[in-house]
Amino acid sequence: MSIMNMRFLGLMALIALLAGCASGPVYRAAEKPGDYGYRDTMLTSQHYRVSFSGDDGTARETVDNFAMFRAAQVALSHGYDRFRVVSQQTSPITETTDYGPSAAVGYGWGYPFWGTGIGYSTGSVSRTRYETVLQIQIGPDVPKEGPDVYDALQIKQNLAAEVAAQQR
């Protein structure tokens, strides 16, 4: 591998590292529709839709866990120690960006070599991210136990370390 190629790869690695540092926290409120983060909507006084949409670097399991963490926060913020998951759906969201045809001409040098080049490319980039949507029930009508009933404080405690670790 030539020195030019090694320098180019080093520069690309540095740019990727800086881009990762520039992104915001993974667990946060979604700022606008289609953005990543959590959203919750009150459907009735005891039913909420809670969702978490990850960015393209967030694993599906993490998206599921963050939605559960947010559901626990919603229950606790309304004074309830448990919640029931009425429905859960996790979906992939694939976004494709087309980079139309492009051409480039360049030259370079590095002792003892120099060169010129012409390039042409077409293509697109696809990124897949995940969104989990939960319908939850909170309030006095939630049974104390059941297959879809969760202790909100326990969920929050168990997932707090993962949420904290994913902050960028």
Rank of each mutant, 00 (worst) to 15 (best):
S2A: 12
I3L: 11
I3C: 04
M4K: 09
N5G: 07
R7F: 11
F8T: 10
L11Y: 11
M12L: 10
M12G: 00
L14N: 04
I15W: 11
A16H: 08
G24I: 08
A30V: 01
A30T: 03
E31V: 09
P33G: 01
G34C: 05
D35H: 15
Y36F: 13
D40K: 00
T41K: 14
T41Y: 12
M42Q: 15
S45R: 08
Q46M: 06
H47E: 12
H47N: 06
R49T: 04
S51Y: 00
S51D: 07
S53M: 13
G57A: 10
R60D: 05
R60Q: 13
T62S: 05
N65E: 13
F66L: 12
A67N: 04
M68D: 01
M68H: 05
M68E: 01
F69P: 00
A71M: 06
Q73C: 13
V74D: 04
A75E: 02
A75H: 07
L76Y: 08
G79D: 13
Y80K: 00
D81M: 02
F83M: 09
V85I: 15
Q88G: 04
S91A: 11
P92Y: 03
P92E: 07
I93W: 07
T94C: 07
E95Q: 10
T96V: 11
T96W: 04
T97R: 14
T97A: 08
D98C: 00
D98A: 08
Y99W: 07
G100C: 00
S102M: 07
A103E: 06
A104I: 01
W109L: 08
G110N: 14
G110S: 14
P112A: 10
P112C: 09
P112G: 05
W114A: 15
G115F: 12
Y120E: 09
G123M: 03
S124L: 01
S124Q: 09
S126G: 08
R127W: 01
R127I: 12
R127L: 11
T128G: 03
T128Q: 07
T132A: 11
V133T: 14
I136S: 02
I136F: 10
I138H: 10
G139W: 10
P140W: 06
P140S: 09
P140I: 06
D141H: 05
P143N: 04
E145G: 00
P147W: 03
D148L: 12
V149F: 11
D151C: 04
D151F: 02
L153F: 00
I155L: 15
I155E: 02
K156N: 05
K156T: 03
Q157V: 14
E162F: 11
A165L: 09
